[in-house]
């Protein structure tokens, strides 16, 4: 009960609340950035460029979406790096071609993510480990498994996956984008379930949530499992992008997902935020990288850029959260 104002703040209309929420702000940033990109590179408005951008952003966007579930419940999930690496090497070492094969691969990726998420959830909710510590452990184990399956970059992802998932539907809709739309639809439904509302409740104040009757460990485990599944799909989509396997493919995700979550207006302190914001945050990060490095900055210095963006995203997220605190917008 930390943020109780002495007097009720003036109410704002739902529309205005959505605009000034973290999601609204990051959407605005994305549009402005895209306009800038189009200004410099006129072909930015072509279907090809847009599809390319969506394809590039989808794995990170899905991973950030998963991370958001855990962050809203007040936790950190480092296993994202492990799950993405593990599913990526599996896709490359055991390719299954054709639509049926793709579906089986997708289900396998989801299942791996779900198992890892379940383990995380049990370690945290039932055995009382800190989220960072528990997920650090599972991340390491998953990375080890990825190395056992494939000890150096190599392998080939099934052609059907590689070609179909990077293609467009009717020549305009990027197929990868459909995965994002599916994730958003599922999310919007989920946040209207008891568990979805419970997720925000335990993120704000676990004790109060328990006293209000929320099944705290059940909700927490659900968040980790949901996150794991999304990481699995992220690994699946990454494989479609890269067409090959790399046992350390997930490592860059660790940092970028947190940057995307923070940029999307989900404070790392939990209880607030939206998966949609994180997806837009991921898109913004990839777009930003594209805009800046189309200028030809040496790729040696990509890391400097990423490090600063990460810190700035968190500081930005903290600031937005502080500004919005009085005018609650989930």
């Amino acid at each position: 009960m930390s943020a109780i104002a002495a007097n009720p703040a003036p109410r704002r209309s739902p529309f205005w609340r959505a605009v000034i929420s973290g999601t609204g702000i990051v959407a605005l940033i994305y549009v402005l950035l895209y306009a800038l990109y189009a200004f410099w590179q006129p072909d930015a408005l072509s279907v090809y460029t847009f599809t390319d951008l969506v394809n590039n952003s989808t794995p990170l966007a899905l991973a950030a979406a998963g991370e958001t579930l855990v962050v809203i419940s007040r936790g950190f999930d480092l296993s994202v790096a492990g799950v993405v690496s593990l599913t990526n090497v599996l896709m490359a070492v055991y390719p299954l071609d054709g639509p049926g094969g793709a579906l089986v691969s997708l289900l396998m990726c989801c299942a791996i993510g779900a198992v890892v998420g379940m383990i995380n959830g049990i370690l945290v909710a039932r055995l009382g480990l800190q989220t960072i510590a528990a997920t650090l452990g599972t991340m390491i184990v998953c990375q080890g498994l990825a190395l056992v399956i494939l000890d150096a970059p190599g392998g080939m992802v099934a052609d059907f996956v590689t070609y179909t998932l990077t293609d467009t539907l009717f020549g305009v809709v990027p197929i990868a984008g459909l995965f994002l739309v599916a994730a958003i639809v599922l999310w919007l439904a989920f946040r209207r379930t008891n568990t979805g509302i419970g997720l925000y409740a335990i993120g704000a104040d676990e004790q109060s949530a328990r006293f209000s009757g929320v099944a705290v460990s059940g909700v927490r485990i659900t968040a980790f499992v949901g996150a794991g599944i999304l990481y699995g799909v992220a690994g699946f989509m990454l494989s479609a992008q890269t067409a090959t396997g790399n046992p350390t493919a997930g490592t860059p995700f660790l940092m970028l997902t947190f940057a995307a979550v923070a940029l999307g207006g989900t404070p790392l302190s939990g209880g607030r935020g939206s998966l949609v914001g994180s997806i837009l945050g991921a898109g913004t990060l990839m777009l930003l990288q594209k805009v800046l490095f189309s200028g030809g900055v040496s790729s040696f210095y990509t890391g400097i850029f990423q490090g600063f963006v990460l810190v700035l995203a968190i500081v930005f997220g903290n600031t937005v959260a502080r500004l919005l605190r009085k005018d609650d917008a989930r």
Binding site: S2, I4, A201, A204, D205, Q207, S208, F211, S212, D328
Partner: peptide
């Protein structure tokens, strides 16, 4: 049912 002294409301809901 109990009305708790430390209030068990969720500020974000």
């Amino acid at each position: 049912a109990t009305a708790f002294q430390e209030l068990s409301l969720l500020p974000n809901l």
